[in-house]
Each structure stands twice: as C-alpha cells, then as structure tokens.
Design a protein around this nucleic acid. Structure first.
Length: 359
DNA sequence: TCTGGGGTCCTTCAACAT
DNA sequence: TCTGATGTTGAAGGACCC
C-alpha cells in the first residue's frame, strides 16, 4: 500500500490575518511582533522578508533592517479563531488530520483516488471562505510533504517521491530538513558533512559513532527522505506552562516571588476551567547569561489549585535562589491524571530522537 | 545588538524495585 | 546473601518545532 501524505501550511499566517482586517496594508512590509525591547518577530510579510526580516529575529533588529515596516502586535485570540475555521475545512478533506500548530496540518491521503485534486479543492475552499493563502506539499510520508510545502511557498503546490526529493534537495544543507536544527547541523559540518546528499551517503557506523544508536540512523533516514511517522489525530497535551521574559532583568527576590505567584494563578485558572490536574509542578529560571534552569517536584496526588501551585513554585524558587539577575521566570505543570479516556492503542510511528551534543 | 512563549521528546543519571 | 542485569520514575538539561 503506497502511502500518500499531504502537508498544508498557511502563508505568512499572522500577517495574513492582520491584512484581512487592514487591507490597505497589502503590498507593504508588515511585521507582527511584540513591542518590548526583547520581543522577537513572529511573522513577517514577504515584502518585509526581502529586507532580511524573518521569524525569530529580535524586533529591534527588524526595525533597523526595515525602518519603514508596519509593526503590529500579535493578536493570538484572532489567530486561534481563524485557525479553527481553517482546520474545520482541513478536517472535512480527509478522515485523518494531524494539526501541527495554528497554521499547518498533515493529512493522511493514502488510498484516496485523486489526492492532488482534493488538495487543490481544499486550498480553494480556504481561500474562498477565509481569504487566506496556503502552500501544499504531497509525498509518500510526512517528511517529504513538509519539505515540499516549504520549498514552494507562497501559494506552493509540490508533489515529490523520496527519490525526487533526494535529487532536488541533495545540495541543500542538512538543516533544511525538520528534525535537524542548528546544533546538529554544526556537528555534521564538523564531520565535513554539509549537504543532505553527503549525509545520505555517510556510512551509518560513522553517524552512530558520533550521534549515538538512535540519532545516528535517524539523521541518515531524514537525509534520504525516509519517514514512517504516522499522521496522528488525537494527541494529548502533556504539560502546560506560563512564562515571562522581563523587559529588564530582575534581581529582587520579593519581586520574583510576586511574579511567580501571578504566573501560578494564570496557570491555575486555565487548569481549573478545563478541569485538569497534574502531579508535577516545576519552575523555569533564565538568568542574564541566558542559562536556563528548571526545578520540579512531584506531589503525592494531582492538584490544580493556584494556592498549591504557587506554594510549590515558591518553594522551588527559594531553594534555587538565583545568584544572578533573572531574565525569565516560568511555572509549569505536568503529569496530568488520565482523562475519562477511551484508551487509544498508542500506535507509535517511530520515535524522533534528539540529542544533546556537547561542543 | 542579541535571542518570545508555548510546547514535545530525548538523554543522562540516580534511586529504587525486581 | 551477594551480584548483576534490567526496568521504572523522577529530575535536570537540551534540541527542536511553530
């Protein structure tokens, strides 16, 4: 049975939602980002990208790169609402859909007579009913589908086999492929491996030696565009957190405790509303040198009240007693109790190893 | 000049159980 | 009883993703 998977990705999603409300900005460089001195760009319009403004760069740098850009603060409520409208259309197009963020989804199309036509219809439906543009990739697995949707945007539509993907992207750096980030790419480069083709041809033993028994073979499979990961609808949240980066580092312990208490309340509010309880409460502390530290404690039973979360979090913070100015503080809960579950068979599709690479 | 917020999952290590 | 292999849990740190 030949698999067929599609990946659909909304083009410049946040910016596009903003342009629906403010069409007079169409054609201009538009950037969605927070305004704090430490904010980063969440999305840039294609006009802004010409100036080198991309997601994840500091907003201050974006302003220098493109002083004429229109900066708009993010409105996640609007994006979530629009995302739900789009995903309803996506789910109507295939029985198995994996939503992978507000602006993208995988569709299992195996066995479908005309996947291309179906995806064309879906893109049209999204455009007609929401005004948003989307790019589509189709392939024998999620990896090929994802790389294809990315390669051709905006308004892309690309279908490749694994062999075709190897040919087309062989000269690209390994980081083109999802799952190979900056650290891994750097480690590969140190081995002289600077392209997907080179990675695909590297003996497995070499990669195992450097990256371990799981990550090594995984990297080689990625470069060969092999992927047996399942398109899985029902994914359950494993943890939930609230965190804040301060405009300026905070040293005062009392101030940190007030902030942590507030974060605990925000987290608890959500948990109580959705009637979820967890056993593990943790904190996250990022210091001025950007080192990140976490501390956690598992309680005898599940809880979700703000008093308990705050109490545990404060204890953890006092025990950690940061010795440097703090840039970010967060609180997290995990270990949720089973939800009145219709047990799923946990049909795992091959894990995705990721490894810490010293140096 | 730095580097958000919300997540997932992997690895390592220690403690403990079998 | 001692020792080793092996599994489970929890904690901490990281890599990576959108």
């Amino acid at each position: 049975v030949d698999r067929c998977v599609a990946h659909i990705d909304l083009d410049a999603f946040y910016v596009s939602v903003e342009l629906l409300r403010r069409p007079e900005l169409k054609g201009l460089p538009v950037v969605v980002s927070g305004s704090s001195p430490r904010a980063v760009v969440t999305t840039a319009s294609y006009e802004a990208r010409k100036f080198g403004v991309h997601s994840a760069i500091p907003a201050a740098r974006a302003r220098r790169l493109c002083p004429d850009a229109i900066f708009i603060p993010p409105d996640f409520v609007a994006y979530r609402e629009m995302s739900q409208r789009v995903m309803a259309l996506v789910r109507a197009a295939a029985p198995t859909v994996e939503v992978a963020g507000l602006d993208e989804a995988y569709l299992e199309l195996t066995g479908m007579l005309s996947p291309r036509a179906e995806m064309r219809r879906l893109v049209s439906a999204i455009r007609d009913q929401t005004g948003l543009g989307a790019s589509v990739g189709i392939g024998p697995n999620k990896l090929v589908a994802k790389v294809c949707s990315d390669a051709d945007k905006p308004a892309g539509f690309l279908q490749l086999t694994s062999a075709e993907a190897r040919t087309r992207f062989g000269a690209e750096p390994p980081g083109l492929v999802p799952g190979i980030g900056p650290k891994t790419q750097e480690a590969l480069s140190a081995l002289g491996i600077r392209s997907l083709a080179a990675l695909a041809q590297t003996p497995e033993a070499t990669l195992v030696e450097r990256f371990g028994a799981r990550l090594g073979p995984y990297l080689r499979r990625r470069a060969r565009f092999e992927d047996d990961g399942a398109v899985s609808s029902d994914r359950v949240r494993v943890s939930e957190s609230r965190e804040r980066t301060f405009p300026e580092d905070v040293r005062d312990p009392a101030e940190l405790e007030r902030i942590l208490t507030r974060l605990a309340h925000m987290l608890a509010e959500d948990l109580e509303q959705s009637e979820r309880r967890g056993r593990t409460v943790g904190i996250k502390v990022r210091l001025d040198d950007f080192s990140t530290h976490t501390r956690a404690r598992t309680l005898p039973g599940p809880i979700n009240d703000s008093a308990t979360i705050a109490a545990v979090a404060l204890e953890l913070l006092r025990a950690f007693a940061p010795q440097r100015p703090v840039r970010l503080l967060g609180v997290r809960i995990a270990g949720f109790e089973e939800r009145a579950s219709k047990q799923a068979p946990a049909a795992d599709g091959a894990g995705k190893p990721q490894l810490a690479l010293p140096v």
